[in-house]
Nucleic acid binder design. Structure first.
Lengths: 191, 191
DNA sequence: CCATTAATTCGATATATATCTAATTAGGTT
DNA sequence: AACCTAATTAGATATATATCGAATTAATGG
């Protein structure tokens, strides 16, 4: 849902008289004068508010004989309620999308199209992205001998020792008796 | 949730600038000038809106060094979203409650405290309430002989024939070969 | 303790809007 | 066709508020 529509809806609901009308109509349809009577207001005022409520499509009307009955459009109300919950969740997804795009940009910049690392970024944040990219080929829970790990790193860059050291420094891996293993993600360096 | 609080929330959300701020903050905390920059507005304007947003408790702040970061209070947002859905449902329940109370009032008026019917109401709506009250002792899908049904009705009133006729007229029951049976509720007389 | 930077407050302005009374329209009913 | 009743429109008024520039405050860092 576009933002401006949501703004209009909230603006419409941000009035005590209109909210009381909504509550009344949620109990069942009423005609204008009945609403005016129950709320202690004059018909023109009710017309004014009905106009606003119709603008966002939360009420509709049917004529019965001489009088017009106003109905609450419950599906539309529910629709807006859903949009409200979406508002924050949508934004979170948007954030994730942006982050993924930025990571990809860094990777494209520091790796050749054959997939080899040009050089380690100086900026910490970018370095972490690059290191994590290379870690993707390792399996969690698997044990690697130093020679094995070196071979793996050499696929990306000749200076395997430097990169192996970075893996340890930033807590991506740990070494025990010459055997290397991935740390669980929650132990990794952040930001 | 009280109505006035919901009104305040909607009034607060009914502004394009504030909704944009909400969306921004949903992606993560920001400091005032960053918000001002992203929205193309001046810091005083941002302060103004932050004030409104804090009033309804959808943002909070934490200081980090020299600058203040503003956070979206997502649980509170969710809380209001739930309140919005409740708004119409609450009113429907309220309506049901009122109807039940009115039915009980009619029953209290037309039945003695021993549970016997004083007389049939003249008003159609009240008559239906009274008839439905007496029908509650019958089981759906069960077949009753006329004599059996008469005995049942006599618990409420001596003129069983009149009441039995009402059951038929208003489509609560049907008769086939002298055997009576309840109709499904969707066939009953309404209003 | 001073300097810096971010945030807030103040004052002004332009715009929006909730409500009423009075007048008008719209649509059925007789 | 004339009449009635409900709804709407028009016009007026009072209140609220979004925004900005200028001045002020708050709090940290040197």
């Amino acid at each position: 849902m576009q933002l401006s529509r949501l703004v209009s809806f909230f603006k419409t609901m941000g009035d005590p008289t209109r909210l009381r009308m909504i509550k009344l109509l949620a109990e069942g349809p009423l005609h204008g004068q009945a609403i005016a009577g129950k709320l202690g207001l004059t018909p023109p005022t009710i017309t004014h508010h009905l106009h606003k409520l119709r603008e966002v499509n939360v009420v509709y009307q049917r004529r019965d004989g001489n009088t017009i009955y106003f109905y609450l459009n419950k599906p539309v109300m529910d629709h807006y309620a859903a949009a409200l919950t979406d508002l924050t969740e949508q934004a979170e997804k948007e954030k994730d999308r942006k982050e993924a795009a930025e990571r990809q940009k860094v990777i494209d910049h520091f790796f050749t199209c054959e997939g080899r690392l040009k050089h380690l970024p100086a900026q910490r944040k970018k370095k972490l992205i690059v290191l994590e990219h290379m870690l993707k080929g390792l399996k969690k829970g698997e044990k690697y001998e130093e020679k094995q790990l070196n071979e793996y790193i050499k696929k990306f860059h000749d200076d395997y020792a430097a990169i192996r050291r970075e893996f340890i420094i930033h807590n991506y891996m740990y070494r025990e008796n010459g055997i290397y293993e991935l740390n669980p993600e929650e132990m990794w360096a952040k930001e």
